[in-house]
């Protein structure tokens, strides 16, 4: 059953038939771009992202600071391991969540805490009681300071949002300039078999619902750490 499908479609067609709306008042001639655009038209208007990789990494770092994302660059995987061990000790992690992923597995090699792995399913309460969720990602977005995750790169839907601290490991090769490039990347990577979940994470969870005052960790992680491996 699909409800009033035929009726609604009929109404839509009736409303549009021989009844053109005035075109938007625009100062730029963009109708062609919009009708058949390849997703690049917006690059002309959106914030600048820099031409080179170092510029983009700098931009990502700068925006991260504003978002209170803890952005850490490390030269080697062993430095990354050192960093995660330090985080675990300082934050007194007792249990963490992770998933099957080459870089995540490498990162956690020296961690001796109990690990809830999500890739084959998990008990919600078990994941909820983890102190951190460690995931990979699809890309980092310089323009917004965001991380794109998917079912595949982040071990499902909940691992990157349920535990109170989300740690992401990424490589500099994963830095893309903007959202358009991020979408191109996932289209290439997944083709017609998209995962059921793709998300841009831009900073730790936040709310301003009480007197418009910023509070971190509204429902999702209070802390977001991005470890960028050169």
């Amino acid at each position: 059953m699909n409800g009033g499908r035929a009726i609604i479609l009929g109404r839509i067609r009736e409303a549009l038939r021989n009844n053109p709306a005035p075109r938007p008042h625009t100062s730029h001639s963009q109708s062609e771009a919009a009708a058949d655009h390849n997703g690049h038209a917006q690059r002309e208007w959106l914030p600048k992202v820099g031409e080179t990789l170092p510029e983009r990494i700098d931009l990502f770092a700068k925006i991260s600071e504003g978002l209170t994302t803890e952005f850490q660059r490390v030269p080697t995987m062993s430095a990354a391991r050192h960093l995660i061990t330090k985080l675990a000790t300082e934050s007194q992690w007792k249990k963490i969540g992770s998933h099957s992923h080459q870089d995540v597995d490498a990162l956690l090699e020296e961690i001796e805490l109990p690990i809830v792995r999500t890739e084959k399913g998990y008990a919600i309460n078990d994941l909820e009681s983890c102190d951190a969720g460690i995931t990979g990602c699809d890309v980092l977005v310089a323009q917004t300071g965001g991380i794109m995750v998917s079912v595949e790169s982040a071990g499902g839907r909940a691992l990157s949002v349920l535990p109170p601290h989300h740690v992401v490991i990424a490589r500099t090769s994963q830095m893309v300039p903007d959202l358009t490039a991020a979408f191109e990347h996932v289209k290439q990577k997944y083709g017609k078999q998209f995962p059921s979940f793709l998300s841009f994470i831009t900073g730790p969870s936040r709310t301003g619902d009480i007197e418009r005052i910023l509070v971190l960790g509204a429902h999702g992680p209070k802390r977001l750490t991005v470890i960028l491996l050169d």
Binding site: T144, G146, L198, S199, F200, T202, G203, R206
Partner: peptide, 9 residues
Amino acid sequence: TMTCYNTMY
């Protein structure tokens, strides 16, 4: 710049 989560299902 972006809200914290923009998710596509």
